[in-house]
Nucleic acid binder design. Structure first.
Lengths: 251, 251
DNA sequence: TGACATTTGTTCGTATATCGCACAGATTGA
DNA sequence: TCAATCTGTGCGATATACGAACAAATGTCA
């Protein structure tokens, strides 16, 4: 690919959009310039462009994104059949288990929720399609890492910020790699309060008819109601059933 | 604003992203050029830029979006406090009603889901944050239109493609404006199978402490289980309660 | 309050990057 | 095999980014 096959103005604009996610709702030109590392004049042009297209509002001082930017993410969700295919299975799974069920894909060091059926609130943060969690400490993340070649899994861990969210969080690369190997062998991953105190989850990979992983599927439950051991007994059969049903449907 | 304050390369790139939503998962350069109306060379540069940044995959023939584009929509969802604030209330509402509950904002002629708590599947299509429905035939859309000045509501209807999704769909502007006036007076909107056969829904506006509308809130239910009249009795009190609780919290 | 310092937003000139067109090579399908 | 369609490239005209300078707003301190 030649150098002129890259539209830097476009790339800069996308960087500006993402600058909003990391901090507050409203950004001034200078704030956006600091976050993105771009020149103030350049950021100003991008923001005014967003504003003129209706992706942002501008009150003369602050810029804020409008719901129209959801069209961009929606372009992915509606263009990719996966979320629409998986959603009804998640709804059924969630209802049978009486707990939240979700599906996610891997993007860099993070898993991204592509569909979700929620029962009562269990986590402190709100998850929805597009939400992200670090792969190393999420059950669906472990499943994805187990599906990668070992060197790539190690690479993801190396690029991750391995911090202990709770006293239970595994942060040592050796320990994590051993855990990932176990997940690969047993075909599921269980997380016991590594992400948040009080939250357990169990995940399996979603495979297509060629045994390639296309997503991860999980059930999350409050640790107060269900121990990690009970998760396995109660929910693994349901997850396996859903996994088998979807394997036939996918591609 | 001067003409040079507009980055057309950025605007063109955003158009290219949205081109994916309207059709299939994969687009060739020529297809994307036809959908967007842009020059092939321009579209090609945009797509290669997306690919280089990790927002798209390219197999030499087809481009497809990656989950990374969800970061863009997520920039809005996480930058705007509204979805996170509303979500727990939706969860509770959905659980008490035993039906799906959602919140949305208006974007042009469409409502955009910003948060949702789903119970069992009732609609044929899958709704999630970022999903869109035409305002004129959705309960939350009617609530938003009722909150606008009459001239603006009429303008939205004029720009809408008023088609009859079902035999019950209201498509006449006079009839719709009369309905919108009624919604404004009674403070809620009921849709009886105008969007899809078998689906009823009831919506109320979410107001902040200055009585400005910030979102619409609804409960959807299968018509087979709940008649339109029962919707009112059963769910309006719940919606009103949630509305009142959120009025204090918002802004 | 007033004077000064600092930060922020905007404009300008110029070097550079991008656009759209036209053409050539590659691929597809009849 | 040929025609039709698609993809990639070179080029001149045009648009954009950068850095600096300026103007306006904001903050600070006596």
């Amino acid at each position: 690919m030649r150098e002129t096959d890259f539209v830097s103005g476009f790339a800069r604009g996308l960087t500006v959009i993402e600058a909003f996610g990391e901090t507050q709702q409203k950004l001034t030109i200078t704030e956006a310039a600091n976050i993105t590392g771009l020149d103030r004049a350049t950021v100003r042009r991008s923001l005014l462009t967003l504003s003129q297209l209706g992706y942002a509002d501008y009150d003369g001082k602050f810029f804020s994104l409008t719901p129209k930017v959801l069209r961009l993410g929606h372009a992915y969700l509606s263009a990719t059949p996966l979320p629409a295919i998986v959603q009804p299975y998640l709804d059924q799974l969630s209802e049978r288990a009486g707990q939240s069920a979700s599906a996610s894909v891997l993007d860099g060091t993070e898993i991204v929720y592509i569909a979700r059926a929620s029962q009562k609130r269990v986590m402190s943060i709100s998850l929805m399609p597009g939400s992200r969690l670090p792969a190393y400490c999420a059950s669906m993340g472990r499943v994805w890492l187990a599906a990668l070649p070992e060197s790539q899994a190690r690479d993801v861990l190396a690029r991750s910020d391995l911090k202990a969210n709770t006293p239970h969080t595994k942060t040592d690369v050796q320990v994590l790699m051993a855990e990932i190997t176990r997940v690969r062998e047993q075909g599921y991953a269980i997380i016991d309060q590594e992400l948040e105190i009080g939250l357990c989850s169990i995940a399996v990979p979603l495979l297509n008819d060629r045994n390639q992983i296309v997503a991860a599927l999980n059930i999350g439950a409050p640790a107060a109601h269900v121990s990690a051991g009970e998760m396995l007994e109660r929910y693994l059969p349901l997850l396996k059933e859903t996994q088998a049903a979807l394997r036939i449907v996918l591609r």
